[in-house]
Amino acid sequence: METDLPAAFIVGLLGGVHCLGMCGGIVGALTLGLPRQDAASPRFWGLQLAYNLGRIVSYMVAGMVAGGLGLLLAQAGPLQATRQVLSVIAGLFMIMMGLYLGGWWMGLARVERAGSVVWKRIEPLGRKLLPVGSPVQAFFLGMVWGWLPCGLVYSVLIWSLSAGGVLHGALLMGAFGLGTLPNLLLMGAAAGWMGGFLRKPMARKIAGGLVMVFGLMMLLQLRPDNLISG
């Protein structure tokens, strides 16, 4: 678990190339009620931080659910073998996420489309909070937006299944959420520059390749004998 948290943080950091497309619009919407000169003011940063805190809280709630479910699955069968199987699934999802980020395979887009069924019911709640005029509004908007269908988030949620429990699942998703924070904060302050940089094919391929490396490392750390013997 000690090594999982830094790894989850780095995966979130690398996933900034995906966050731009998924969350860039809402980050911009946070400043709709602010004069142009306020873009570097304490109020601006207060809204940004409140929004992202709400988003990370939603990630942690989802991580608690996934970690608890993973623990129940592990208790229902051979403990070590079940955790190993969940870790294999998490590693494979991480590799698929790397392929998706790099633009080599778009299969996870189908997973995001499947998640949009639930999102259609949640999204109107966020729309009622616009335009954002206070950190409290921004926080609740972030909590709503945390449930946006996202292949990157889903991949780390699968990882949370193998985390070993409710607390570990929440911490894993929290570390991932903190990793996405620098990109989204910079996106709010310098959306034009960040957008141009992160849309470059080379930036996406490097990030995707590094996420794939994390997935491979996760698989290489597993012990095949546990999968066989349980």
Rank of each mutant, 00 (worst) to 15 (best):
A170C: 12
A175S: 14
L141I: 08
G169Q: 14
S162F: 08
W159E: 04
L184Y: 05
G177M: 12
M143D: 04
G174E: 05
G169K: 14
W147I: 00
L184K: 13
L148R: 10
Q137E: 15
L161P: 11
G174D: 10
F140R: 14
M143G: 15
G165E: 02
A138L: 10
L184D: 03
L184S: 06
W147A: 07
M143C: 15
G142T: 06
G142Q: 00
V166D: 03
V144G: 09
A138M: 08
F139N: 10
L141D: 06
T180Q: 09
P149W: 03
G151C: 09
M173Q: 14
L171D: 02
Q137I: 12
G174K: 12
G142H: 05
S162W: 07
P149Q: 07
G165K: 01
P149F: 04
L161E: 01
N183H: 14
P182R: 12
V156A: 00
W159M: 02
L185Q: 09
S160M: 12
L148S: 09
S162P: 00
G142P: 04
I158M: 13
L184F: 06
L181Y: 09
I158F: 13
S160D: 04
G179M: 04
F140L: 15
A175P: 02
L141F: 07
G169Y: 13
S160I: 11
L148G: 07
M173K: 10
M143A: 15
F176S: 07
L178H: 03
A138F: 11
L157K: 01
A170G: 13
Y154C: 02
F176G: 05
W147L: 10
V144Q: 03
G179K: 07
L171S: 01
G179L: 05
T180K: 07
L157H: 04
L184M: 15
L185N: 08
G146T: 04
V156W: 00
L152Y: 02
L184Q: 14
M173V: 06
W145P: 04
L172S: 10
W159L: 06
V156G: 00
L185P: 07
G179C: 07
M173S: 11
C150K: 09
F140A: 13
V156S: 00
F140P: 00
